[in-house]
Computed example of a mutant assay.
Amino acid sequence: MSVHSEIKRVTTNTLKELKTKKEKIVCLTAYDFSMATLVDAAGIEVILVGDSASNVMAGHETTLPITLDQMIYHAQGVIRAVKRALVVVDLPFGSYQGNSEEALRSAIKIMKESGAHAVKMEGGKEIEESIARVLSAGIPVMGHLGLTPQSIYKFGTYTVRAKEDEEAQQLRDNVKLLQDLGCFAVVLEKIPAKLATEVSETLEIPTIGIGAGNGCDGQILVIHDMLGINKDFSPRFLRRYADLATVMNTAFTNYITDVKSGDFPSKKESY
């Protein structure tokens, strides 16, 4: 019996069980094979192949430019690495908002070509039909409310959402709608902690927070941010667990020194 066959895979059902047990769900992004291998081996429950790849992998200012095929390329590498985690892939901007048929086509393409386990879609009432259509094909959907980066030009800013009563009520309604439609979880991004806690307590499905306080059922961060590879991004909600930018810079400068001085490669490192 191989080692891998003994590993219990995380499913959408596992997440529901964790919420019932009041055990927090741990999520991280990953965009390639090597990084996903490490994340999965560490025991992270959910890996999101986020459209944040547009920012951290491709250098775009927003998440909007990344295409469906590019998302699939990133997802394929992650899926090849993963033995245990639930892999969720973002449906990128423009691949589902227009009409529900396109949403279904996009979701099926991701599932077939990458082997992903679920997709994530940003929005509530305005994309209700698209979510329902994707779910009707048996594809698990994770919702995403609050600050939805694909709508950045509508908001005009990355500030905290749902601070006013009207928007808070809209969020409550949308989160209930996503649960009723059949989403297995919902990401709550940059909303007041009190509202996130209230919503998490009223829902049967798990909430995954990012900048939404400690009352959510789980947390997610972008891997480049939490590892300190990306130094330019320091929002209040981010905790850096490493300073890899400095570690890597030291390695690069040491390598330059060793090559320039003729120290590398040594006799031992030659054939």
Rank of each mutant, 00 (worst) to 15 (best):
P65W: 06
V46Q: 12
L68I: 10
I108H: 07
A81M: 11
K19V: 09
S106I: 15
V56M: 07
D51Q: 08
V78D: 02
Y73T: 02
G59V: 04
M71A: 07
A30I: 13
G43Y: 08
T67H: 04
I44T: 08
E102K: 15
I110M: 11
E101G: 10
D51A: 00
L18K: 15
E113N: 00
T63K: 00
E17D: 15
V82T: 14
F33N: 08
S34G: 13
A36Y: 14
H117T: 06
E17Q: 15
E61N: 07
K19A: 06
S34P: 10
I44G: 02
Q70S: 11
K120R: 08
A42W: 12
A85M: 12
Q70K: 12
D69H: 01
M57L: 06
Y96W: 08
G59N: 01
E101N: 13
L104A: 09
V39R: 07
A103I: 03
F93N: 12
A42E: 03
Y73Q: 01
T14D: 04
S106F: 14
T29V: 14
S34M: 14
S52C: 10
G94D: 08
R80D: 13
A107E: 00
L38R: 03
A85T: 09
A103S: 07
V82F: 04
I66A: 06
L64V: 01
A36T: 13
F33V: 05
A118Q: 00
T29Y: 12
K112T: 05
G115T: 00
S95Y: 07
L15N: 08
S106E: 14
V82K: 12
G59T: 07
R105P: 12
E17G: 00
G77R: 06
L28T: 03
N13E: 15
E23D: 14
M71I: 03
T29P: 10
G50S: 12
L38V: 03
A85E: 00
A81N: 04
K83A: 11
T37P: 02
D90H: 03
G115S: 00
Q76A: 00
G94R: 00
R84Q: 12
V46K: 12
A85C: 06
D69I: 03
V39T: 11
V46M: 10
T12E: 14
E23Q: 11
A103W: 11
T12P: 15
T29W: 09
V119R: 06
E45L: 06
A41E: 02
I66M: 08
S114K: 08
I72E: 05
A42G: 05
V89I: 11
A75I: 09
D51N: 11
P92F: 01
K120D: 04
K112F: 11
A30D: 03
G59Y: 09
L48A: 01
G98R: 05
D32P: 10
A53Q: 05
G77H: 08
